[in-house]
Design a protein around this nucleic acid. Sequence first.
DNA 1: AGTGCGATTGACT
DNA 2: GTCAATCGCACTA
Length: 200
Amino acid sequence: MSHSDDHPPLAREELPDDTAALARYLIGKLVVRDLPEGSGRIVETEAYVVGDAAGHGFRGMTPRNRSLFLERGHAYVYLAYGISFMLNVSSETQGTGTGVLIRALEPLEGIAIMRLNRGVERLRDLARGPGRLAAALRIDRSLDGLDLCGEGPLWLARDGTETGAIGQSIRIGISKDAERLLRFYLVGSPFVSGAASLNR
DNA sequence: AGTGCGATTGACT
DNA sequence: GTCAATCGCACTA
């Protein structure tokens, strides 16, 4: 399980060019990790778009955020608060410092490994939150810049099942451009982070 | 070279 | 609900 044979990577051409469209598109898709096995369904994302003061690429390229400027479908991984790694998918064309933050997964495969990586038992707590999902799948800066449309160790794939209704809200934990509705989530999923009031 | 601050989490009242 | 932990890095000088 969890080999690229079972979960062929998404082709870059099928990723919407627009960042907000990509964030919505990724809901219901899979993040697959070579642990050697491990996967989860994306249930929550946030878009950091062109001209967005909250985006890390807003002030131009730096050593930390250079992966954000890669062609769409590459990993931008950074350490937040000195504590938690954040997984983003770069978006738009090369040279555009925009991306989509993956905020929560519904664990599917490699659940025992995720429990070990996280040190918690509860399924709902394994990957609910950006730092938690990175810990569960052992995502760190060594994966920064990786092509998520290519062969492992980490990639995006399609899920066979239907995706339910997608909700939209303000983004979590930011202060600039905080009123924009650029967070997307699978309505009714218990694996979504954030306050209940944001998830209606 | 020094400083302030997060796209968070977990522990605690 | 509140709050501290923790550190890479962007910014100022």
